[in-house]
């Protein structure tokens, strides 16, 4: 069982990892729409340690934290995000498309497209007679896509071991959740698909972990799909470069005061599980470790341009071109 201090350490790794990614934007080492999960760490840290290697996790365009939670090698991730040949996907994927087949971790840059993939993993587990489960993490923007309904219905109709974690950060880019959803919450929709739905404070890593563990246990014991809706707030724009004028400064400031790292830090100190000194020292050590990773990745080569046409097919039978 993952302890609270361990979950806090995950959150620090996640925060510092995202900050390291951010360093690559102004230096033009990282291109495209980089989506950072800063502010949403308590959800991924609540997932961390619960899943087995043979459980699948399918993530989104904002996927780095979930990969860390699944145990994907952070150096290979960082190298992929910094577009190096040593990256998780050799530089062919990029920051939105992290895959680690050995851990059944994958991501998609298309909103809502991960959920049916998780249903496929869950069905694979059933075909094998395994009790492995499949998790799809989606944002609140994805829950109104057609594929979300199709997948939830499929999972419910077949009682598949699917857990959908909805990171409800209130904003689908610039449009607030309450304007786009017919229901006040995502969790309350679960009954339509024969699923269990719970809504938790996504800044509370203990609440997330508890709800997630319950959902995984239900799935593993054949009780079908669950939706775990975790409320949160993204501290940065939708992507690096987003002017983010659709949210007021007061709103952003109020949420920053509810930083899940601060909340967890205080909780550890208040409960006597740790001290300010120990946590500060630990934070500094993790920060240094991530910076070491970054420095090391920056020394790696870029992909060889002559390989850009590789990997379209396994069997290269396109002799004509």
């Amino acid at each position: 069982m993952t302890t609270l201090p361990e979950r806090y350490a995950y959150m620090v790794w996640m925060r510092e990892f995202e900050l390291a990614c951010l360093e690559g934007v102004p230096t033009h080492e990282v291109h495209g729409e980089l989506h950072l999960g800063i502010g949403q760490e308590a959800i991924a840290a609540g997932i961390a340690g619960v899943l087995r290697a043979d459980d699948a996790l399918v993530s989104t365009h904002r996927n780095h934290l979930h990969a860390i939670a699944k145990g994907v090698d952070m150096r290979a991730m960082l190298a992929e995000i910094f577009e190096r040949s040593t990256g998780l996907c050799g530089g062919f994927g990029g920051h939105m498309h992290l895959f680690d087949p050995s851990l059944k971790f994958s991501a998609t840059g298309i909103v809502g497209a991960g959920l049916p993939v998780a249903v496929g993993h869950a069905y694979a587990a059933r075909l094998r007679g395994s009790d492995a489960v499949a998790v799809a993490v989606v944002g609140d923007g994805a829950v109104n896509s057609g594929g979300f309904h199709e997948s939830m219905n499929m999972a419910g109709a077949m009682r598949l071991p699917v857990i959908v974690v909805v990171e409800n950060n209130e904003w689908a880019i610039s449009v607030p959740f309450h304007l786009t959803s017919a229901t006040d919450t995502v969790a309350e929709r679960a009954s339509a698909w024969g699923a269990v739905g719970v809504r938790v404070d996504g800044n509370d890593v203990v609440a997330v972990a508890s709800a997630f563990q319950d959902a995984v246990a239900r799935a593993r014991s054949g009780q079908g799909p669950s939706i775990v809706e975790a409320t949160c707030y993204r501290f940065r724009g939708h992507f690096e470069g987003d002017s983010d004028l659709y949210r007021t400064e007061q709103e952003k400031e109020a949420h920053r005061a509810q930083d899940p790292l601060l909340i967890t830090h205080r909780r550890l100190v208040a409960s006597g599980l740790s001290t300010d000194e120990v946590l500060s020292k630990q934070y500094a050590e993790i920060r240094a470790a991530v910076q070491d990773l970054l420095a090391s990745v920056r020394a790696d080569p870029l992909p060889d341009a002559s390989t850009a046409r590789d990997h379209v097919f396994v069997a290269s039978t396109l002799e004509a071109r």
Binding site: A56, V58, P101, K104, S106, A113, L115, P116, V117, A118, V119, G120, H121, A122, Y123, A124, A125, R126, L127, A134, G146, G147, E150, S151, N153, M154, A157
Partner: peptide, 25 residues
């Protein structure tokens, strides 16, 4: 199980195929 009648849900069908393939099928 190996010859599965699905709902009329083509996005879920094709997405499931992705997950099944990622999982060795």
């Amino acid at each position: 199980d190996r010859v599965l009648d699905t709902p009329i849900s083509e996005t879920a069908i094709t997405g499931m195929a992705v997950g099944l393939a990622l999982d060795g099928f």
